[in-house]
Every structure is written in structure tokens, then in C-alpha cells.
Design a protein around this nucleic acid. Structure first.
Lengths: 245, 245
DNA sequence: CGCTCCCTTGATCGTTCTCAAGGCCCGTGG
DNA sequence: CCACGGGCCTTGAGAACGATCAAGGGAGCG
């Protein structure tokens, strides 16, 4: 399996939540993917757009965000290599959110037509993509309960737990350490807090011995403690290895 | 079209977001649906369950909720007649949230097996159900940005706008008036606020001449004003009539 | 070497929570 | 018919989490 090719990455990610047959892997590995590099903070698609293709993250982090009338931003999701941030656009023709790069990114683009075609011929691939959008929705639910009912300290811990688990699925964590090229302002937009408060919360997490950070590298020092602080149960990520079918 | 039959209601709701052919309508109208009555505040499925069927709301309101370790509840969605609150369970075998009745309800149940069978034979019905789950996800995104970035007053206005539009799609609004059998405590769990604060916010909305309420009946007195207060743009509901494909 | 972006810190303000209690409506039972 | 009880709504007051405002410091880059 070409884990370093765009297709191999996508397959690896899909397989972390859905079992694929050899034939299905083969079909997916032959999908034409057009690769493009992006700088940080570039919009990929915007609210109101009618995309004709989906975007696969190959390197870097992207985010899905919405703006309020007052101009405040809420990041509703981060996406890491292997993810498809706008997979929904396959069936929702108008974007109700924007997608942007957070760090420098390499992105792959796949035309809707190609995806529709492959879905028509391989119902189980339809199911795999559908399932991927359902896991995204599950993450939305989890974030929402965090923002609505947990304090900022716990939300931040939760976010770090989630990113660690998701990055692990694509081999981007070593010894509890991973690269997190996300500014505190962006973390703030994600957890629904102010930049200042996020800064203080991160200091607390460090002071409590849960994490350490050096530049954009984050190390989890106390996984059990961080999970407890974040009230984190990976069930909602619906990974196959957690006993989810 | 039997708009009063369980199947007719489901079809009407689906058609508000997805165009169906005569044949597809026919197939859906023949789905066997087992109808059961529920009292208020009854769990229909719980976190950790492995459901073998999906639940269609026929009468009343249901909610999807999650609990934090501290026992706080976040309602992440309300569902009204025509909706399928646990459609996700078709592809996510373990429930990551619970579903409960809010008011007295009539619910219809459809085995997963039946749904999978129909999806295999009618790819466009697959697409319709997939799309329904995508619209649910879009609503999660919108709620999340509200909870994260809007104040309680605006969130409450937004929620009322959304319910009005969704109830309209199934013919449950007359002259801007609809039945809202949801307690203030439940509204609080949905907008991520305390019961006390929701009470005050509702008083403000009434004082501002935006709504009126009598018992469980809510009347929208100033639709434009309520939309403005809620920063409400129905785009995210992806109804066909809003120019969404 | 200076600019810009990001992180950090201090102080004040405010939305919202929590605690506590009183009132209303309505169904139940005597 | 009326007393009782239990939800649910309402109100008040104090506390807290977190926002906002303001400013300084560090690191990378041209």
C-alpha cells in the first residue's frame, strides 16, 4: 500500500473507519487526484460556492469555519492528512461553510463526477464515504456538547486528545508528540473562547503536567490525565479498532 | 400522496430537500413502518446501543442529547415530524448519543435491513438519505457557531427561526404560530445556557415584540426582526426551494 | 535592523451561572 | 368542590468564567 501517495493516504484513513476489500482498494488507488500546494490562511471554498470537486488533505491542517453577522469566526472542524473537508459537497450543492488552510498545505482534488461514478459502481465505497461524513457529524456533536457544557480548560484538553487520536490513525504521532501548526487565535475560534483565555488555559495544562509544547510541537505527558481533563471517550470517532463495526 | 400516513410524512420531508421520482415515492410508500406511542422524556436509544432499526418521528418532538462526565446535558438536535433522528445508525453501529422524546410522541420504526435493501436497489434513495444526514450535520455546524460565538439572546432567536422553518416544511405552522412542547429547561440544554437565563432571554424576546407565547403555542410577531436577532439565514437547511439543488 | 506575527500578562467589565425562593397552573384525590 | 402536590415558570442577588482592552516581549524574515 502506497501510504505516501495521495490515494494510499486516503485509503489508509478510510480503512481506519471502514473495512475495504482488495478490489475496492484497487479502485480507489486508481482515482486521479490533482495535487496543489497552498499557503496558510487561504480559503479553499467559501460559503455560497458550488464546488465541482472535493478536496483531500495530503499535508498540513485545514479548518472548516463559519462567520457570524458580527464577524466572529467559529471553526467547526479541523482536518488532517487523509481527511476530505468538503465531502458533503457531493450531495449539498451549496456550501454552507468555508474551508481554509491553517498551515501550509498540500491538497488533492477529485472531481465530483469521478466520485459519483465510483459510488455508482461500488455501493460499498458509497457506504465508506457516507460513513466518513457521519463520523464528521459525530465530531460536530461532541464539539457542540463541549462548547455548550464544558469549560474552556476541558474543551482544550478534549481537542488535544482528539487531534492526537486522529493523527495517530495516519501515523503522524511519535511518542505522544505531534506537530500542531495552529495558532492560539485559531484554537480559540475552535473552542469558542478568546485568544487570551486560550493562552491561559494552555498554560494551565502545562502547569498541570498534562502537555508540553515547543514551537509547533506538542507532547502529551500524561495521556490518562489529559483524557480525564477533557472528558474524552474516543467512542464518537467510530474507529474500527475501538470495537465499532 | 398520503401526507397523513407515516410513509407520506417521510416522503414529504425527504422531498423538501431531495427530488424523488414517482417510482421512488412508490417504493418508499410501501416501506413497512411499525408505529408506537411514547410518553414524554423517554429514551428511544442510548449511548452505546447497537440499534437494528431507525426511528421516524410521526408526531411530537424528539431530541438528540449527550451527557458530560459532570452530568450536564447538551441537546444537539431537535427532531420534528418527518425526521429520522438516528438515521446515522445505518452506518455507525454504536450510538454516540442518546435520543429521547421531548413531548408525547408517535414514532415509526423501520429495520436497518429494510433500509439497506432499499438503498441497494435504489441508489437515488441512498443519496436522499445520505443528503438528509448531511443536512443534519449542517445544522450541527450552525448550532455550534451559535453556541460558540453568539449570545444566548441571539441563539434563542435563531432556534425559534429554525424550528419555524422546519415545521413549515411539514405543514405545522399556521400564521406564524406553531406548537412548541419544549420546556425552558430543555431549551436551555439546547442553546447551552441555564434555565434561568433562558427564561430571561425569552422575556426579552417577548418584550422586544418578536414573539408571543401562550401555553405551548408560540407566535412569531416580527419575522424579519427575529431573523435579524438570530442572525438567521436558512441556507444551511438546504431546502430545495431556497435555490439549493 | 526593523517589521510583523504571535505569545504573554495585567486589569476591568460583563454575560451568564448558581443558589434560593416564591408563584402559577393543573391534575389528583379526598 | 376544594386542598394538595408537583412540574414549570419567574425573580433576586452574588459569584464566576471568560471577554475585552491595553501593552509588552520574543522570534522569524526581508
Amino acid at each position: 500500500m502506497l501510504a505516501h501517495s495521495p490515494n494510499g493516504l486516503m485509503i489508509r484513513k478510510l480503512e481506519s473507519i471502514f473495512p475495504l476489500s482488495d478490489e475496492e482498494r484497487q479502485v480507489l488507488s486508481e482515482l486521479p487526484i490533482q495535487v496543489t500546494a497552498f499557503r496558510p490562511d487561504q480559503d479553499i471554498v467559501r460559503v455560497g460556492d458550488h464546488p465541482f470537486q472535493c478536496c483531500l488533505v495530503l499535508q498540513g491542517f485545514t479548518c472548516v469555519y463559519k462567520l457570524t453577522a458580527e464577524g466572529k469566526r467559529q471553526i467547526v472542524a479541523f482536518h488532517v492528512p487523509g481527511d476530505i473537508p468538503d465531502l458533503q459537497s457531493l450531495h449539498l450543492k451549496v456550501m454552507d461553510n468555508s474551508v481554509a488552510t491553517v498551515s501550509p498545505c498540500t491538497l488533492g482534488f477529485i472531481p465530483h463526477e469521478t466520485l459519483h461514478d465510483i459510488c455508482n459502481r461500488y455501493p460499498r465505497i458509497t457506504a465508506a464515504f457516507w460513513r466518513e461524513t457521519l463520523v464528521d457529524a459525530s465530531i460536530f456533536r461532541e464539539w457542540m456538547t463541549g462548547i455548550g457544557r464544558r469549560e474552556a480548560y476541558n474543551r482544550m484538553a478534549h481537542l488535544l486528545c482528539e487531534l492526537k487520536v486522529r493523527l495517530e490513525a495516519v501515523g503522524l504521532v511519535e511518542d505522544g508528540t505531534f506537530d500542531l501548526p495552529i495558532t492560539q487565535a485559531e484554537l480559540a475560534d475552535a473552542v469558542g473562547a478568546s485568544t487570551v483565555h486560550v493562552n491561559r488555559v494552555l498554560q494551565e495544562l502545562r502547569a498541570d503536567g498534562l502537555i508540553r509544547s515547543k514551537g509547533t510541537q506538542v507532547s502529551i505527558l500524561d495521556w490518562a490525565g489529559l483524557k480525564a481533563a477533557g472528558d474524552f471517550d474516543p467512542l464518537y470517532l467510530h474507529r474500527r479498532r475501538d470495537g465499532n463495526a
